[in-house]
Computed example of a mutant assay.
Amino acid sequence: MAEQSAPSRAWRVVLEKVENDLLDGRLGPGDRLPAERELAGNLGVGRSSVREALRVLEVMGLIRTGTGSGPSSGAIIVAAPTGGMQALLRLQVAAQGFPLDDVVRTRLALEEAVVESLARDPNRSIPAARRMTEVMVASDLSPAEFLALDAQLHLSLAEASGNVVITAMMAGLRSSIESYVREGADNIDDWDATADRLRREHVAILDAIDAGDAEKARELVHSHIAGYYAHAGLSR
Rank of each mutant, 00 (worst) to 15 (best):
residue 205 I to Q: 06
residue 104 V to G: 02
residue 58 E to G: 08
residue 125 S to A: 13
residue 30 G to N: 02
residue 162 G to H: 13
residue 44 G to P: 05
residue 140 D to V: 00
residue 154 H to T: 11
residue 84 G to T: 10
residue 127 P to L: 14
residue 13 V to F: 03
residue 9 R to L: 12
residue 74 G to K: 10
residue 95 A to V: 00
residue 112 E to R: 01
residue 17 K to T: 08
residue 128 A to F: 14
residue 34 P to Y: 07
residue 18 V to P: 07
residue 24 D to Q: 11
residue 98 F to A: 03
residue 101 D to I: 01
residue 195 A to R: 15
residue 28 G to Q: 00
residue 120 R to H: 15
residue 2 A to F: 02
residue 217 A to W: 04
residue 88 L to I: 15
residue 32 R to V: 01
residue 2 A to W: 07
residue 192 D to P: 01
residue 63 I to V: 11
residue 60 M to H: 02
residue 38 E to N: 12
residue 193 A to C: 05
residue 172 G to K: 13
residue 210 D to V: 03
residue 200 R to I: 02
residue 30 G to V: 00
residue 102 D to N: 00
residue 232 A to G: 11
residue 101 D to N: 09
residue 56 V to Q: 13
residue 190 D to R: 15
residue 186 D to K: 14
residue 203 V to H: 08
residue 8 S to V: 10
residue 205 I to T: 11
residue 216 K to M: 15
residue 197 R to A: 15
residue 144 A to V: 00
residue 225 I to L: 04
residue 127 P to S: 10
residue 196 D to H: 14
residue 170 M to W: 02
residue 58 E to H: 13
residue 85 M to F: 14
residue 28 G to M: 01
residue 98 F to E: 04
residue 175 S to H: 08
residue 23 L to D: 10
residue 189 D to C: 09
residue 167 T to K: 11
residue 123 N to Q: 14
residue 7 P to C: 06
residue 129 A to C: 10
residue 93 V to M: 07
residue 113 A to E: 13
residue 186 D to S: 11
residue 225 I to D: 01
residue 161 S to G: 09
residue 93 V to N: 03
residue 11 W to D: 13
residue 1 M to D: 06
residue 6 A to H: 05
residue 179 S to G: 09
